[in-house]
Design a protein around this nucleic acid. Structure first.
Length: 426
RNA sequence: GGAGAGGUGGCCGAGCGGUUUAAGGCGCACGCUUGGAAAGCGUGUGUACAGGAAACUGUACCGAGGGUUCGAAUCCCUCCUUCUCCGCCA
């Protein structure tokens, strides 16, 4: 959601900035409906003022013992007129709100201009891919061969785009979750949170998934419950409609949750392996910060996410997304991409964004400044996507014999140095 | 699932059809007082939208949404939610 005053006062500039991210704002329609809406509102409010005044007068006259039949009839008439006018006024307001709700956030001035992922800009690259004297296999071969990953049985239980882990495979996922949470709480200063995995419509509106992106979500039939597509939704909405004291900022939360996405519109993409699933695990970082610091906080958050990869010895690069590739609610986003030798490519493993006040305005999250309250800035980023980290470890640490070495930092969590062949029916 | 009691401003808490422009208190801010502080006294103290250069004015908001009425925090209906007890359950 946007600052209405900004749109009114700087409509041309605003439309230009939106155009840079492929959103066409109909300025004439905006102006026209804004003016009509205000006129209708003024008319209704004037009548209401009149009604309030006369009703009060009726009370006073009744107390004095006067007859008020005629006055009451006149106020009744005003009331009828109000109901009539309100219909139009409310419709205009709804129209205007719908228009506003559908407008994406404005990109920060530092965001590179561009149309697609091809225009994203690499900001740093760390780690060197291991030299292998054999051909690297993708995880869907390695995992299945080791007996730790199974797609066919998951398809039987549920369907396509689901997977089941066995043995050390399941334990590796759990180890990664604990390692990530321990690092973020112990070294990066986040408070661990375990939120609900189902969220209501208000929460999804607050973070920007609704109303535009309902198709990407799973809905529970008969309830206003949705499966959370990311912990960003429950965690950011923890503070919905709250006003925080200035000295409480910044608030830094991390959470492990499963995430559920319909992946509508991604048919045919990443069909093999566990890169793109209907259910995946993620550790999420969420920050509530003062507007003056939000870009420094974004850099810090991105660094915190990268740190997991550093500790695991996984090569990565960090990309600044261009205007055309950013998500709806974001003002600036860095994607962290991990090296996957089995697929000979860098693949997104974390997306770190500053939403500025876009979500805060939708969700009503403020802080009390020196005098009055204002909207704070919200940020979040994956720290990291657990399933994709699993993939990165299996592919980067694969050995010629098909086993997988466990990176040093993870060994205390797994109680093992290597994953060898095992499995359900082994 | 059943029975009962609640949900009022930053917080506590009154009000249960018409000077409520939401009493009173706490907290906070400013001023007076003071050598300084406390106490005391005085003034102010929400959010959103609209109008206005501004001072300010209007409208809405007492969990949410409907209804009754000239007029609703107050009466009626539906829902959400918190607490207590019972039942069921991991």
């Amino acid at each position: 959601m946007h600052d209405l005053q900004l749109f009114r006062g700087h409509l041309d500039q605003t439309a230009e900035r939106l155009a840079s991210r492929k959103f066409e704002l109909n300025k004439d329609a905006f102006r026209a409906i804004d003016v009509r809406r205000r006129e209708a509102l003024t008319e209704v409010e004037t009548l209401k003022a009149e009604r309030n005044e006369r009703s009060k007068d009726i009370g006073a006259r009744k107390k004095a013992g006067e007859d008020t039949t005629e006055l009451q009839a006149s106020v009744r008439a005003i009331g009828d007129r109000i109901i009539e006018l309100e219909k139009g006024s409310e419709q205009l307001d709804t129209e205007f709100q719908d228009l506003l709700k559908g407008i994406p956030n404005l990109p920060h001035e530092s965001v590179p201009l561009g149309a697609s992922a091809d225009d994203n800009v690499e900001v740093r690259r760390e780690g060197t891919p291991a030299v292998m004297d054999f051909e690297a296999k993708p995880h869907w071969d390695l995992g299945v061969d080791l007996g730790i990953l199974d797609f066919e049985r998951a398809a039987k239980v549920t369907g396509a785009r689901f997977a089941v882990y066995f043995g050390q495979g399941a334990k590796l996922e759990r180890a990664l979750i604990n390692f990530m949470l321990d690092t973020h709480t112990g070294e990066h200063g986040y408070m661990e949170t375990l939120p609900p995995f189902l969220v209501n419509s208000d929460s999804l509106f607050g973070t920007g998934q609704l109303p535009k992106f309902a198709d990407d979500l799973f809905k529970c039939e008969g309830f206003d419950f949705w499966l959370a597509p990311t912990a960003e939704v429950p965690v950011t909405n923890l503070l919905r409609d709250e006003t925080l004291d200035l000295e409480k900022l910044p608030i830094k939360l991390c959470a492990y949750t499963p995430c559920f996405r319909s992946e509508a519109g991604s048919h045919g993409r990443d069909v093999r392996g566990i890169i793109r699933q209907h259910q995946f695990q993620k550790v999420e970082l969420v920050k509530f910060v003062h507007p003056d610091n939000s870009y420094a906080e974004l850099d810090a958050l991105t660094h915190d996410a990268e740190n997991i990869l550093r500790k695991l010895g996984l090569p990565f690069r960090t990309m600044a997304l261009c205007t055309g590739d950013m998500g709806f609610s974001s003002a600036k986003t860095y994607d962290i991409e991990v090296w996957l030798p089995g697929q000979n490519t860098y693949k997104e493993i974390s997306s770190c964004s500053n939403f500025e006040a876009f979500q805060a305005r939708r969700a009503g999250i403020r802080f009390r400044g020196a005098k009055k309250s204002e909207y704070l800035h919200t940020l979040n980023g994956s720290g990291l996507a657990v399933g994709r980290t699993w993939v990165a470890i299996v592919e980067n640490y694969q050995q010629k014999d098909g086993s997988v070495l466990i990176p040093e930092a993870l060994r205390p969590y797994l109680n093992a140095e290597v994953i060898t062949k095992q499995g359900l029916l082994a």
